[in-house]
């Protein structure tokens, strides 16, 4: 197309189109920018900050920042990688995550990012918050211990399911996901097939009676690190 423009990510020239975010253009070019709150089917949120890149030297989130002709994007400098590690570790210690017996293990984007970044144990102290679990619904449960406040369920329920089952309440460290009912999830119109459930990147919203459905070895991130699918699209591997 004629309206394509060029810009660089870590010195590599990539093509962008008007209206694309840096992340979208990078994905097409086979360059993986790590992310958590971003989801292909959902409007960008810009809350996890894991996709922070430098655009002409200024920090921006790749999921929200438009690509533009000639911009210089830095994606994998030591400093940015350190910041991403710090953010991922913050998300671990902020909640109560227990990978070793979480149903989402192997399919969890937070866990997969930690593996990709080589995080073995967080350097930050665990905060051990008290979080509520909602098992009221016959088919779905919410375990806020594992919630990373990415807001994917909020957007998916509103924009894909047309339901508005979820929304954030509270602020600061007390911010949490609430449901559109006086008491519990069972009183909402949430359903097993909702995209809001599958959009959860971690084990915070799960379908009941599934448990550990996929054998170890066949799970999403068992064979290759998260982001490999995007990088595979690239003709010339870049390290």
């Amino acid at each position: 197309m004629n309206d394509r423009f060029a810009f660089t990510i870590d010195g590599v020239e990539v093509q962008g189109r008007p209206g694309q975010t840096i992340m979208q253009a990078a994905d097409e070019a086979g360059i993986y920018i790590p992310r958590l709150c971003s989801h292909k089917e959902l409007a960008p949120h810009g809350s996890c900050r894991v996709c922070t890149v430098l655009v002409n030297g200024r920090p921006q989130t790749a999921c929200t920042q438009p690509a533009g002709p000639g911009i210089i994007v830095e994606n994998s400098s030591e400093a940015l990688l350190a910041i991403r590690c710090n953010l991922i570790e913050m998300l671990f210690i902020e909640g109560n995550h227990f990978c070793m017996f979480c149903e989402k293990s192997g399919n969890c984007e937070l866990q997969a990012l930690a593996y990709r970044f080589g995080i073995m144990a967080p350097k930050y102290p665990y905060l051990f918050p008290t979080r509520e679990l909602d098992a009221s619904h016959p088919d779905i449960f919410i375990d806020r211990n594992r919630c990373i406040l990415c807001g994917r369920c909020v957007r998916a329920s509103r924009d894909l399911d047309g339901k508005n089952v979820f929304q954030f309440v509270g602020r600061g460290p007390r911010k949490r996901i609430a449901v559109n009912a006086k008491t519990a999830l069972a009183d909402t119109d949430a359903a097993r097939a909702d995209k809001a459930v599958s959009a959860c990147p971690v084990g915070a919203i799960l379908r009941k009676r599934v448990g550990y459905g996929i054998p170890i070895g066949q799970r999403m991130y068992d064979a290759a690190p998260i982001g490999s699918d995007i990088e595979a699209a690239r003709a010339h591997p870049h390290k």
């Binding site: 810009g46 809350s47 996890c48 913050m90 998300l91 210690i93 902020e94 930050y124 911010k175």
Partner: peptide, 16 residues
């Protein structure tokens, strides 16, 4: 107290 809690670094980082 005054953080909106939207983004990770502000919500968690300041507690740390």
């Amino acid at each position: 107290d005054e953080s909106c809690g939207y983004c990770t670094p502000c919500r968690v980082g300041n507690v740390l």
